[in-house]
Simulated scan of single mutants.
Amino acid sequence: MKKGILLVNLGSPDSPEPKDVKKYLGEFLMDGRVIDVPLWARTLLVKGIILNTRPKASAAAYKKIWWEEGSPLIVLSERLQDKVQRQTEIPVGLAMRYGSMSIHKGLQELVNKGVGEVLLIPLYPQFAMATTETIVVLADEIQKEHFPNLKIESLPAFYNDPEYIEVLSQSIKKHLNGKSYDHLLFSYHGVPERHIRKSDITKSHCKIDGSCCITASKAHQFCYRHQCFEVTRLVGENLKLREGTFSTSFQSRLGFDPWLQPYTDRTIERLGKQGIKNMAIVTPAFVSDCLETLEEIAMEGQEIFHEMGGKEFTTIPCLNDDDSWVALLAKWIKNWA
């Protein structure tokens, strides 16, 4: 049976214009694993409020980071796909969870090439309901409805894979390029605290109390919070970072429910107030730079830091199409194939 790969990333509007942003946000926010409330409440919130207020502001943010070639997330994902394809003989497809580059289209293209078995690679190091799970569940639904003879496997979360940690660590080291810094902040995409409890397969371990994430448990296999803190810890060990010179935070909260803390914007503000002058920040929840990294962190985060008296704000790029990351993906693919 011919094998193939489908890389899957988040997605992007087709353009930074409000109408395209509204369409994209509608699909994204109506996902029950992103806003996990009953359909009637989600519809009221998204279609009744958010889509009538947010698209214009989001479009302005997208315009700040949009490249001549298109959406940075899409362009960078396509570069990654191209480089990985050069290192393997089996077909490598690319799809997005939201937007016009759909998973259905990606699977169809592979099937058209004679592929009967697919390795689905969600481009997220950590497992989360709103990222990995929604990709895997949708791919399964599409397979059952449209491609009943297609076999699909999924690459598990690779947050603690030693080779991934080495690639991430060396990328951080390379982009710091010997620059001195007072603090290195690991900022991860935020999720509501209830997502952590919902993903707890033990139904009892995750209490988000400061100790559960460092106490061994089967729950860690699907615990986004644990996996984020673990990436920070493992990279800290790899780079021999001194205690107190690095920390973890979470960005991009939405609504009024409790989200994972500490919050990135408040952490940047606090560090500036404490007298930190040289700060570096890395975003390991993503493998490709996107709106959250290029606008929320590199622009808004830097502005907050400077307002608080900080001087040097260094944003470390995501892995993107880094050659070592490409080689590692190609190795995983060859091992599977």
Results as ranks from 00 to 15, higher is better:
101 M>S: 06
123 L>A: 02
87 Q>K: 13
15 S>I: 06
271 L>F: 10
249 S>C: 09
43 T>A: 04
46 V>H: 00
232 T>P: 06
191 V>L: 10
276 I>Y: 14
265 D>V: 14
169 S>F: 08
121 I>L: 07
215 T>W: 13
70 G>I: 02
172 I>A: 03
100 S>P: 04
210 G>A: 00
192 P>H: 07
220 H>I: 07
242 R>T: 11
123 L>I: 04
110 L>N: 10
158 F>Q: 02
301 G>L: 12
314 T>W: 14
158 F>R: 00
37 V>G: 03
256 F>E: 12
310 G>H: 11
243 E>M: 03
268 I>V: 15
274 Q>S: 15
137 V>S: 12
89 E>V: 08
217 S>F: 11
199 S>D: 13
201 I>N: 08
128 A>W: 06
131 T>H: 00
58 S>Y: 09
305 F>G: 11
178 G>H: 04
200 D>H: 08
190 G>I: 04
242 R>C: 05
299 M>K: 14
261 Q>R: 14
239 L>W: 01
312 E>H: 14
139 A>G: 01
187 S>P: 03
207 K>R: 15
226 H>L: 09
276 I>D: 11
73 L>C: 03
296 E>D: 15
70 G>E: 01
89 E>N: 15
37 V>R: 00
152 I>P: 00
47 K>H: 05
133 E>A: 15
34 V>M: 09
158 F>D: 01
195 H>R: 04
241 L>M: 01
194 R>A: 02
208 I>R: 04
209 D>V: 09
280 A>Y: 05
301 G>R: 11
252 S>M: 06
302 Q>S: 14
143 Q>N: 13
262 P>M: 06
199 S>Y: 11
119 L>S: 02
267 T>V: 15
220 H>C: 08
260 L>M: 02
104 H>M: 11
85 Q>H: 03
148 P>G: 10
91 P>Y: 06
225 R>K: 12
39 L>H: 13
283 T>Y: 14
56 K>M: 04
286 F>G: 03
209 D>A: 03
59 A>L: 02
218 K>N: 14
146 H>D: 15
23 K>L: 02
22 K>W: 02
75 V>T: 08
333 I>W: 07
167 V>E: 01
24 Y>M: 05
200 D>Q: 08
203 K>M: 10
66 W>R: 06
189 H>T: 10
268 I>E: 12
208 I>D: 00
255 G>Y: 06
68 E>I: 10
137 V>Y: 09
293 T>R: 12
272 G>L: 10
285 A>T: 01
315 T>N: 10
307 E>T: 14
269 E>W: 13
210 G>M: 02
15 S>C: 00
177 N>C: 10
151 K>S: 12
238 N>A: 07
143 Q>S: 12
121 I>C: 05
152 I>S: 05
11 G>R: 02
140 D>N: 14
261 Q>F: 09
273 K>E: 15
171 S>D: 05
208 I>G: 00
84 V>H: 04
109 E>T: 12
174 K>C: 07
141 E>Y: 07
58 S>C: 05
257 D>R: 09
277 K>N: 13
38 P>K: 13
189 H>V: 10
150 L>F: 12
72 P>E: 05
308 M>K: 15
189 H>I: 11
